[in-house]
Protein backbone atom coordinates (compact mmCIF):
# COMPACT_ATOMS: atom_id res chain seq x y z
CA UNK A 1 0.00 0.00 0.00
CA UNK A 2 2.75 2.41 0.97
CA UNK A 3 4.68 1.65 -2.19
CA UNK A 4 1.55 2.22 -4.26
CA UNK A 5 0.91 5.60 -2.65
CA UNK A 6 4.50 6.60 -3.19
CA UNK A 7 4.55 5.53 -6.83
CA UNK A 8 1.23 7.28 -7.42
CA UNK A 9 2.70 10.50 -6.07
CA UNK A 10 5.85 10.13 -8.17
CA UNK A 11 3.81 9.38 -11.29
CA UNK A 12 1.64 12.43 -10.67
CA UNK A 13 4.67 14.70 -10.18
CA UNK A 14 6.30 13.41 -13.35
CA UNK A 15 3.10 13.83 -15.35
CA UNK A 16 2.78 17.39 -14.10
CA UNK A 17 6.39 18.09 -15.00
CA UNK A 18 5.93 16.71 -18.53
CA UNK A 19 2.73 18.68 -19.10
CA UNK A 20 4.39 21.87 -17.92
CA UNK A 21 6.93 21.16 -20.65
CA UNK A 22 9.06 24.26 -20.53
CA UNK A 23 9.68 24.10 -16.81
CA UNK A 24 11.00 20.57 -16.88
CA UNK A 25 13.58 21.64 -19.47
CA UNK A 26 14.87 24.38 -17.17
CA UNK A 27 17.65 22.30 -15.54
CA UNK A 28 19.08 21.43 -18.95
CA UNK A 29 18.81 24.95 -20.27
CA UNK A 30 20.53 26.05 -17.09
CA UNK A 31 23.34 23.53 -17.45
CA UNK A 32 24.04 24.43 -21.04
CA UNK A 33 23.82 28.15 -20.57
CA UNK A 34 26.46 27.84 -17.82
CA UNK A 35 28.60 25.60 -20.05
CA UNK A 36 28.35 28.00 -22.99
CA UNK A 37 28.85 31.17 -20.97
CA UNK A 38 31.94 29.95 -19.10
CA UNK A 39 34.27 29.72 -22.14
CA UNK A 40 33.02 33.12 -23.26
CA UNK A 41 33.69 34.52 -19.80
CA UNK A 42 37.07 33.03 -18.91
CA UNK A 43 38.47 32.44 -22.38
CA UNK A 44 38.57 29.26 -24.48
CA UNK A 45 41.92 27.85 -23.21
CA UNK A 46 41.48 24.05 -22.95
CA UNK A 47 43.70 23.69 -19.84
CA UNK A 48 41.85 26.29 -17.85
CA UNK A 49 38.45 24.97 -18.92
CA UNK A 50 39.38 21.38 -18.08
CA UNK A 51 40.55 22.50 -14.64
CA UNK A 52 37.32 24.29 -13.78
CA UNK A 53 34.95 21.86 -15.57
CA UNK A 54 34.05 19.67 -12.55
CA UNK A 55 33.30 22.69 -10.40
CA UNK A 56 31.24 24.37 -13.12
CA UNK A 57 29.14 21.30 -13.85
CA UNK A 58 28.56 20.80 -10.15
CA UNK A 59 27.59 24.41 -9.58
CA UNK A 60 25.19 24.12 -12.51
CA UNK A 61 23.67 20.96 -10.98
CA UNK A 62 23.32 22.73 -7.62
CA UNK A 63 21.64 25.79 -9.10
CA UNK A 64 19.38 23.62 -11.25
CA UNK A 65 18.19 21.79 -8.15
CA UNK A 66 17.57 25.12 -6.40
CA UNK A 67 15.33 26.34 -9.23
CA UNK A 68 12.41 24.04 -8.57
CA UNK A 69 12.57 24.15 -4.76
CA UNK A 70 10.31 27.12 -4.25
CA UNK A 71 7.32 25.12 -5.49
CA UNK A 72 8.27 21.77 -4.03
CA UNK A 73 5.64 21.82 -1.29
CA UNK A 74 3.95 25.19 -1.64
CA UNK A 75 1.18 24.33 -4.14
CA UNK A 76 0.28 21.31 -2.02
CA UNK A 77 0.19 23.48 1.08
CA UNK A 78 -2.08 26.01 -0.60
CA UNK A 79 -4.65 23.53 -1.92
CA UNK A 80 -4.66 21.50 1.28
CA UNK A 81 -3.12 18.32 -0.11
CA UNK A 82 -0.25 18.55 2.32
CA UNK A 83 -2.54 18.15 5.30
CA UNK A 84 -3.94 14.99 3.74
CA UNK A 85 -0.47 13.50 3.93
CA UNK A 86 -0.83 13.39 7.69
CA UNK A 87 -4.41 12.21 7.67
CA UNK A 88 -4.04 9.39 5.15
CA UNK A 89 -2.95 5.85 5.94
CA UNK A 90 0.40 6.21 4.22
CA UNK A 91 3.10 7.55 6.59
CA UNK A 92 3.90 11.15 5.70
CA UNK A 93 7.62 10.41 5.78
CA UNK A 94 7.23 8.00 2.87
CA UNK A 95 5.39 10.62 0.84
CA UNK A 96 8.11 13.15 1.62
CA UNK A 97 10.69 10.69 0.29
CA UNK A 98 8.56 10.11 -2.82
CA UNK A 99 8.26 13.85 -3.45
CA UNK A 100 12.03 14.31 -3.04
CA UNK A 101 12.66 11.39 -5.38
CA UNK A 102 10.52 12.92 -8.10
CA UNK A 103 12.29 16.25 -7.56
CA UNK A 104 15.56 14.41 -8.10
CA UNK A 105 14.21 12.68 -11.24
CA UNK A 106 13.07 15.98 -12.71
CA UNK A 107 16.00 18.25 -11.83
CA UNK A 108 19.02 16.01 -11.49
CA UNK A 109 18.61 13.12 -13.93
CA UNK A 110 18.65 15.31 -17.07
CA UNK A 111 21.78 17.01 -15.77
CA UNK A 112 23.44 13.65 -15.06
CA UNK A 113 22.54 12.34 -18.51
CA UNK A 114 23.96 15.36 -20.30
CA UNK A 115 26.90 15.95 -17.95
CA UNK A 116 29.37 13.87 -20.05
CA UNK A 117 28.51 15.95 -23.12
CA UNK A 118 28.88 19.18 -21.15
CA UNK A 119 32.17 17.95 -19.70
CA UNK A 120 33.46 17.20 -23.19
CA UNK A 121 32.57 20.71 -24.27
CA UNK A 122 34.84 21.91 -21.42
CA UNK A 123 37.68 19.52 -22.43
CA UNK A 124 37.48 17.39 -19.28
CA UNK A 125 39.72 14.31 -19.88
CA UNK A 126 37.68 11.27 -20.94
CA UNK A 127 39.03 9.19 -18.02
CA UNK A 128 37.23 11.48 -15.58
CA UNK A 129 33.80 11.17 -17.22
CA UNK A 130 32.88 7.98 -15.37
CA UNK A 131 33.84 9.49 -12.02
CA UNK A 132 31.93 12.66 -12.89
CA UNK A 133 28.75 10.71 -13.55
CA UNK A 134 29.31 8.60 -10.44
CA UNK A 135 29.86 11.69 -8.29
CA UNK A 136 26.68 13.21 -9.68
CA UNK A 137 24.74 10.03 -9.02
CA UNK A 138 25.94 9.97 -5.41
CA UNK A 139 25.81 13.71 -4.80
CA UNK A 140 22.68 15.06 -6.47
CA UNK A 141 20.30 13.05 -4.23
CA UNK A 142 21.91 14.89 -1.29
CA UNK A 143 21.21 18.19 -3.05
CA UNK A 144 17.56 17.21 -3.46
CA UNK A 145 17.30 16.05 0.16
CA UNK A 146 18.91 19.18 1.61
CA UNK A 147 16.97 21.39 -0.77
CA UNK A 148 13.74 19.67 0.24
CA UNK A 149 14.57 20.31 3.88
CA UNK A 150 15.20 23.98 3.20
CA UNK A 151 11.93 24.19 1.24
CA UNK A 152 10.07 22.58 4.13
CA UNK A 153 11.67 24.90 6.69
CA UNK A 154 10.78 28.04 4.75
CA UNK A 155 7.29 26.89 3.81
CA UNK A 156 5.56 29.04 6.42
CA UNK A 157 7.36 32.23 5.44
CA UNK A 158 6.38 34.52 2.62
CA UNK A 159 9.89 35.40 1.46
CA UNK A 160 11.11 31.86 1.15
CA UNK A 161 13.24 32.17 -1.96
CA UNK A 162 16.01 34.33 -0.48
CA UNK A 163 16.16 32.24 2.66
CA UNK A 164 16.20 29.02 0.67
CA UNK A 165 19.58 29.66 -0.88
CA UNK A 166 21.04 30.89 2.43
CA UNK A 167 19.93 27.67 4.09
CA UNK A 168 20.99 25.32 1.30
CA UNK A 169 24.43 26.80 0.66
CA UNK A 170 26.20 25.96 3.95
CA UNK A 171 24.69 22.47 4.11
CA UNK A 172 25.87 21.41 0.65
CA UNK A 173 29.43 22.70 0.92
CA UNK A 174 30.82 19.25 1.87
CA UNK A 175 29.07 17.66 -1.12
CA UNK A 176 30.63 20.15 -3.53
CA UNK A 177 34.08 19.71 -1.96
CA UNK A 178 34.12 15.91 -2.17
CA UNK A 179 32.41 15.67 -5.57
CA UNK A 180 34.71 18.11 -7.32
CA UNK A 181 37.63 16.59 -5.43
CA UNK A 182 36.74 13.19 -6.86
CA UNK A 183 36.47 14.45 -10.44
CA UNK A 184 39.68 16.48 -10.21
CA UNK A 185 41.54 13.48 -8.79
CA UNK A 186 40.29 11.30 -11.65
CA UNK A 187 41.30 13.93 -14.19
CA UNK A 188 44.82 13.89 -12.71
CA UNK A 189 44.97 10.07 -12.92
CA UNK A 190 44.68 9.68 -9.16
CA UNK A 191 42.30 7.41 -7.31
CA UNK A 192 38.94 9.05 -6.64
CA UNK A 193 37.88 6.33 -4.23
CA UNK A 194 38.40 8.25 -1.00
CA UNK A 195 36.31 11.19 -2.21
CA UNK A 196 33.58 8.97 -3.62
CA UNK A 197 33.53 6.99 -0.38
CA UNK A 198 32.99 10.17 1.63
CA UNK A 199 30.28 11.22 -0.80
CA UNK A 200 28.56 7.85 -0.35
CA UNK A 201 28.78 8.21 3.43
CA UNK A 202 27.21 11.67 3.21
CA UNK A 203 24.45 10.25 1.01
CA UNK A 204 23.66 7.50 3.52
CA UNK A 205 23.67 10.02 6.36
CA UNK A 206 21.39 12.36 4.43
CA UNK A 207 18.96 9.63 3.31
CA UNK A 208 18.52 8.35 6.84
CA UNK A 209 18.24 11.64 8.72
CA UNK A 210 17.05 14.40 6.39
CA UNK A 211 13.56 13.00 5.58
CA UNK A 212 12.85 12.87 9.32
CA UNK A 213 13.77 16.53 9.73
CA UNK A 214 11.87 17.44 6.57
CA UNK A 215 8.63 15.82 7.67
CA UNK A 216 8.98 17.36 11.14
CA UNK A 217 9.41 20.79 9.54
CA UNK A 218 6.43 20.27 7.21
CA UNK A 219 4.33 19.14 10.12
CA UNK A 220 5.17 22.30 12.10
CA UNK A 221 4.35 24.44 9.10
CA UNK A 222 0.87 23.05 8.54
CA UNK A 223 -0.08 23.25 12.21
Amino acid sequence: MIVRSMSALIARDLRLAVRHGGESLMPLIFLFSVIILIPLGVGPGPNLLAAIAPGMIWVAALLASLLALENLFRPDLEDGTLEQWWIGFCPAGALVVARLFSHWLITAVPVIVFAPLAAQMLYLPAEALGVLVLSLLLGTPILSLVGGLAAALTLGTNRGSILLSILVFPLVVPVLIFATGAVSAAADDLSARAHLGMLGALLILAITLVPLATSAALRLNIE
Binding site: L149, L153, G156, L167, P170, L171, L209, V210, A213, A216, A217, L220, N221, E223
Partner: peptide
Amino acid sequence: RKGARVACILILVG
Protein backbone atom coordinates in the same frame (compact mmCIF):
# COMPACT_ATOMS: atom_id res chain seq x y z
CA ARG B 1 6.68 30.27 18.27
CA LYS B 2 6.35 28.45 14.99
CA GLY B 3 9.44 30.24 13.72
CA ALA B 4 11.39 29.22 16.80
CA ARG B 5 10.41 25.58 16.46
CA VAL B 6 11.19 25.42 12.76
CA ALA B 7 14.55 27.10 13.38
CA CYS B 8 15.22 24.54 16.15
CA ILE B 9 15.03 21.82 13.50
CA LEU B 10 17.57 23.74 11.45
CA ILE B 11 19.84 23.99 14.52
CA LEU B 12 19.74 20.22 14.90
CA VAL B 13 20.52 19.66 11.21
CA GLY B 14 23.45 22.07 11.42
